[in-house]
Structure formats: structure tokens, C-alpha cells
Amino acid sequence: MQFNENGYTKRQRQQWMGILAGSLTKNLENSWQKMPEKPEYKHLHKPETGSIMVRGRAGGSGNSFNFGEVTATRCTIQIKNGHVGSAYVLGLDHRHAELAAIFDALLQDPLHHCEISNSVVSRLKDSYDKHKEEIAKKTAATKVDFFTMVRGE
């Protein structure tokens, strides 16, 4: 595993960025509001909405094709001590992208990493996992149990 000078791996950053992008804005906002000292930040790229063309694969595993677009919003911010946070999130919500970018920057900062990781990211992941689990259990209830009729004899 390759740690950078701030003590996290690229894979770890990818994971938290995915969790922040997949979370509801109101959950991110709650976590932000709860922070006792809000760090100062400036925008390097203000929230901007655009699209990303989603590609599929012919037959599920063959050559790529352009399937259709999704709306996405990007934002890049820099916190006072220089760490730059980026976010690309689905949808039109500027605040979602902004908060995700702020948390991304804080998570790269050794001063804030542990606190944000424990109080924000792990909570978001828990609520996400719980939601997924619920759906997976309801789906499981619709699984067919075949029984075979024995004929003859």
C-alpha cells in the first residue's frame, strides 16, 4: 500500500469520495453544522452543473457504447492550510458538491482526518449500508423457492 505524505492511500481517498458523493445533502449538512469550528475555505472552482456520458458494454461485457447522460455537479475548494478538496456528484445540487469537496479537503488534512473520518464518513457509510441492507432483505423475500413435484410411482 502506498501512503502519501499525509498518511492516506489513494484507495482510501477514492472510498471516502464515493461515500460523500453517495450521501444525502441533508446528512452532509447536518455533519457540517455540528462541526464546532468550521474551517475557512475558498472556491477554486465554484459548483458547476454539467453532464457525464455514461457508457455501457454491448451484451454486458463487450465493446463500449454511449448509453445516456447523467447530470453531475463538480466543485473544488481549498481550505486555509492548502489542502484541495474535489467533488463530482450526481444531480444538480450545488450544496452537495460543495460540502463533499470541503469534507474531501478536511480528510486529506492530518489535523482533521481522524475526526472527520470517525464522526462523518463512518456515520454516512453506516446509514448507507443500513439502507442497502433493508433493500437487500426485501428483495430476498421475493426469491423463488422451487419445489419439484414428484410424478409417477
Binding site: 458547476e48 454539467g50 453532464s51 456520458m53 457508457r55 458494454r57 428483495t139
Partner: peptide, 23 residues
């Protein structure tokens, strides 16, 4: 509306075997 959006890029092709199955 779609025509007013600038495009950020293309996604990596979606991997449907990793779908969270609902049906």
C-alpha cells in the same frame, strides 16, 4: 435541457455484474 449542459466527460463503462440486485 440536456443540450444546455457542458459535458465533463465519459464514465468508465458500468459494470452490471456488480449491481445491487432488486430483480
Amino acid at each position: 435541457y440536456r443540450t444546455t449542459l457542458s459535458r465533463f466527460g465519459f464514465s468508465i463503462p458500468i459494470e452490471t455484474t456488480r449491481m445491487q440486485i432488486q430483480r
